[in-house]
Design a protein around this nucleic acid. Structure first.
Lengths: 254, 254
DNA sequence: CGGAGGTTTGAGAGGCGTCAACCTCCGTGG
DNA sequence: CCACGGAGGTTGACGCCTCTCAAACCTCCG
């Protein structure tokens, strides 16, 4: 039901640039050997598009493929007993979305698109060959999943120790940083196809309270959030409210 | 200051059993080849003891060694600007504590002991050799760090969607499960050298409120927490309060 | 015996959730 | 062209959960 393949469009991989380009930006990955880069690019399978609000992976189902996000936004989420959703991760272009499915073989959470997306598929069979012959590349892939874990930890901190303003501010700081790394944010401006209820699900709040908190940030001339776009007016103050320190993103070379 | 090595006791590795025994319990690791198991055991460096409340790793410092927890409890934590602490992870015997430091080379958080512990050191130089020659073993180690990430996600869910009772209940459910896997809990009873303020730091609450909530759980005949020991009186009800489903621990073979 | 850290309990305040109403925007169909 | 409906945004009233501050007590250990 609503989960067939009719909405998938297989693209010719003629985008004029490597599929793995954004993945290779920052975090020392540019220093990978040419042979390794080529091997990774060669491991790309089909490239697909999905519409907004489309479920990509269901918790528990056996997986033999992992996805690299090329364009758009994806979220991972878990639901409580009454169906209230908690986002545990948001992905931006250049991220491996579910690379952890390669060792794990099934996920403990759902994965779905936010806006429309383009993803590249990596078959686990191919990844197994690749990692068997390229131990250093394996460490790079491992590293990528560890960045996710580092972001998870920061989200724990955020939910455990910050109030509503801090949580939202931190969320925007993180996204701004990550999008800057892949050239999709500059000057504190970036696109973000989220609704206020989505933000609430990311920050452990209710939609109503997110609305009030955004209003406070807006009236303090700190941040604007409107119609799918974010404008950071006062980066310093935002970072201070968020208690944000970007070290956990491992943006500079290790 | 209080961070020298005089309190380290290097043990002869003559405990009568493999250092990696508990690590190999459950999660399909028993199905590793004998050669792989032997190679992992051979990678063990020195074995050390540390007292309670001892800082093992400081955020940001360069690391060339990772630790396997043999005995005792260890926590990973981050502090906010005013010094309020948030635990992001608790480790039980058999866990690699900071294996992620192998690819990452530095951590984004602190690591410290709760009670007294025994740990085995794995030098990254040795792990590099090991993983270069054993791609399947690499995937097992990678897998181990992904379980940590899965637990992080569950903590995010817990903090984002559960109230004080649910958070504490979930914390105890998880620990009970994990300790059972390594033979350190049975019948809902296990040791846990935590104070109520520690629990507060794990659950995003204050010590005072943890106290009240534990009282409620006690008076409902659900759970006892006293002097470093936990007794689960009503496992079913506890799991229900916690909305606990242990799938994310990947306890059965994948 | 004295002190420190942990536990327990109370009183009051505040942040956030819940419920509800109304608005705008936009796609759909008559 | 307009009526309609649904989703999201905005605002108000009210209540509860959790925090803060404070004090008493308890236990362990030096």
């Amino acid at each position: 039901m609503a989960h067939d393949v009719t909405d998938r469009i297989t693209l010719a991989t003629t985008l004029g640039e490597p599929i793995t380009r954004r993945f290779l930006l920052g975090r020392g990955r540019d220093e990978m050997g040419d042979e390794e880069k080529a091997a990774l690019e060669a491991a790309v399978g089909t490239v697909r598009r999905y519409p907004a609000r489309h479920q990509l992976v269901r918790a528990g189902e056996p997986l033999d493929v992992s996805m690299l996000l090329i364009e758009g936004y994806v979220a991972r989420n878990m639901d409580d007993r009454e169906g209230h959703r908690q986002l545990v991760s948001v992905h931006v272009p250049g991220d491996f979305i579910d690379l952890h499915a390669f060792p794990l073989k099934r996920l403990d959470h759902d994965v779905g698109t936010l806006g429309p997306v383009t993803v590249a598929m990596f078959e686990h069979r191919v990844l197994a060959d690749l990692t068997a012959s390229h131990p250093r590349l394996t460490r790079h892939l491992w590293f990528a999943t560890l960045i996710d874990a580092a972001m998870h930890r920061e989200w724990i901190f955020r939910l455990g120790r910050l109030g509503a303003e801090g949580r939202l501010a931190h969320f925007f700081c993180e996204l701004n940083c990550r999008l800057e790394m892949v050239g999709l944010a500059s000057d504190g401006r970036f696109e973000l196809p989220l609704t206020q209820p989505d933000l609430a699900e990311a920050c452990g709040l209710t939609g109503v309270h997110v609305n009030r908190t955004l209003k406070a940030l807006r009236e303090a001339n700190v941040l604007l959030f409107r119609s799918g776009a974010v404008t950071i007016l006062d980066p310093k103050r935002l970072a201070q409210i968020a208690e944000f320190e970007p070290g956990y993103l491992y943006g500079e070379h290790r």
